[in-house]
Design a protein around this nucleic acid. Structure first.
Lengths: 170, 170
DNA sequence: CCTTGGTCGTTGCGTACGCAAATACCTCGG
DNA sequence: CCGAGGTATTTGCGTACGCAACGACCAAGG
């Protein structure tokens, strides 16, 4: 039972420093997501996941993306995306378009209403991200955070999805 | 339509540095949680949320906690916790105990089976957190990360919940 | 041409969760 | 003691999601 001080070996419980880094991440993430989601829902009736989908589509050429690419970008299962697009289609924010080069596939296209809704929501969301997160750090610290994520998940920072998402769509 | 360049004001889209810091956080968090959850599920049949509940109970005096304190610690709604404890009770890992000082309340108590299961799972989880996250950073960097979360969510790092969780139970 | 193996999108089913209402109970002021 | 207002837990209902299975389709080798 002697408390042998190992720097960071497998089975020892996390020390205070480790706990601050790890649990802090979990708590901060949860807190920010919850706040951003609530904000978006209250002001524009959009849950956070929906916002992300609209944003990816908006930034894609012709405002349309293949279902599977979209699913990979959003970190959502394919069935999950199918039903999310169902809801958005019902609300008139996106439309489905069949894919001429691959008859199996389908595009999700942002409608004009979708573009409009997104524009409004985007302002809210960006302000929220800046207010809750980015404003707490200097540009230099933001760089460091970016580097940190790069170490945790090699492809993390930029546009596409973690590993997937070929060029044509993203 | 003119793209006015404001440094970091509300409505301008995130620049690359900001994106790396923010999207990296989202991606890294998702990736780690998914991996840890899968690991725990595969090796011990426990989802991540369940693990967290067991851990909080184990670290509490008498291995028991009030339902509401537990819910606050876990960042779960009260109804969500009720049903989570239902499942754990069904599986024999926890038991319910009425509270003598407050007849409304209930304790969730870790059973011997729960203690055992947790011990096994804890090794897996700690190893996972170290492997996927902590090992990527020096102790000094971990401190910096802890400081960062502190800036985002004042109460983030330590034992209790964000704001709640009075002394008797935690 | 036909077959075999893979991919895309959808659907059936089960799970986990939150919100709001209901119930039982505390607490405090009169 | 009584009642008003608040708290702890549970339950009904709706939503969002993942997995596995399906049908439709592509692609490559015979």
């Amino acid at each position: 039972m002697s408390t042998i001080e190992q720097t960071s070996t497998s089975s020892a419980p996390l020390d205070e420093r480790e706990l601050r880094a790890w649990r802090g991440l979990l708590r901060a993430h949860a807190s920010m997501c919850k706040a951003l989601d609530a904000e978006l829902e209250a002001e524009h009736g959009l849950p956070l996941t929906t916002y992300e989908v609209l944003m990816y589509m908006h930034d894609a050429p012709s405002r349309k993306m293949r279902m599977c690419d979209l699913a990979d970008c959003i970190l959502l299962s394919r069935s999950g995306l199918t039903r999310l697009i169902d809801r958005l289609q019902r609300d008139g924010l996106v439309a489905r378009q069949s894919c001429s080069s691959d008859a199996r596939g389908a595009y999700a296209v942002l409608t004009d209403a979708g573009v409009e809704t997104l524009a409004a929501a985007r302002a809210t969301h960006l302000a929220g991200v800046r207010r809750l997160f980015l404003s707490r750090f200097t540009p230099q610290e933001q760089e460091l955070l970016g580097d940190a994520w790069e170490r945790v998940l090699p492809g993390a920072g930029a546009p596409g999805a973690p590993g997937a998402c070929a060029e044509p769509a993203c």
